[in-house]
């Protein structure tokens, strides 16, 4: 490790304990499914999955996974309700979490086959069950429909 990452699990535990919340049990899996890429990167279709909000009209508590046309990418995503370091940085530069221009460039350079026609929002969910049973299956279905080979998962 070149530098020591922040211990977010400990820090959030202390922060929420100060608000009299029970400690959150972060998701944990002893093993993970693993798919080896079976074709050259230059033939792969790549999709972006992110946690920044496109549709701010839907109340946070009701929001589920969404798929949106790349052509409809907002100039600014809504990030205010997400947990990030609002003291140190900002999210005004979309490309710091949504690599649209980079992937377009890699497509034109033929490093990747193509950018998928849709990008995908997955909410930052307290309920791991909602993520597992609702959001993940919706994301898988959308990616299969779009013939995606690689998904870049980019949580804020």
């Amino acid at each position: 490790m070149p530098s020591e990452p922040i211990k977010y699990i400990d820090r959030t535990r202390a922060f929420y304990a100060a608000q009299d919340f029970r400690p959150y049990n972060y998701a944990h899996h002893d093993s993970t499914p693993f798919h080896r890429l079976r074709k050259p990167l230059a033939e792969c279709r790549v999709a972006i999955v992110l946690t920044a909000v496109t549709n701010g009209d839907i109340p946070k508590n009701l929001r589920g996974a969404e798929s949106h046309a790349i052509a409809d990418v907002p100039e600014k995503f809504r990030t205010d309700e997400l947990s990030w370091d609002k003291v140190t940085t900002h999210t005004d530069d979309r490309q710091s979490f949504f690599p649209l221009e980079v992937l377009q460039s890699l497509e034109s350079e033929r490093m990747i086959g193509s950018l998928a026609p849709r990008y995908h929002f997955v909410p930052t969910e307290y309920s791991q069950r909602n993520t597992r049973e609702n959001d993940a299956p919706a994301l898988v279905d959308a990616c299969i429909e779009d013939e995606v080979d690689i998904a870049l998962l980019i949580p804020l």
Partner: peptide, 22 residues
């Protein structure tokens, strides 16, 4: 995703949370 034949990679900034998840 992986079981459906889609390779995934997380790019993030929370080492402990993501590695705890697996």
């Amino acid at each position: 995703m992986e079981e459906a034949g889609i390779a995934t990679v997380v790019i993030g900034s929370a080492w402990d949370i993501v590695t705890h998840c697996g």
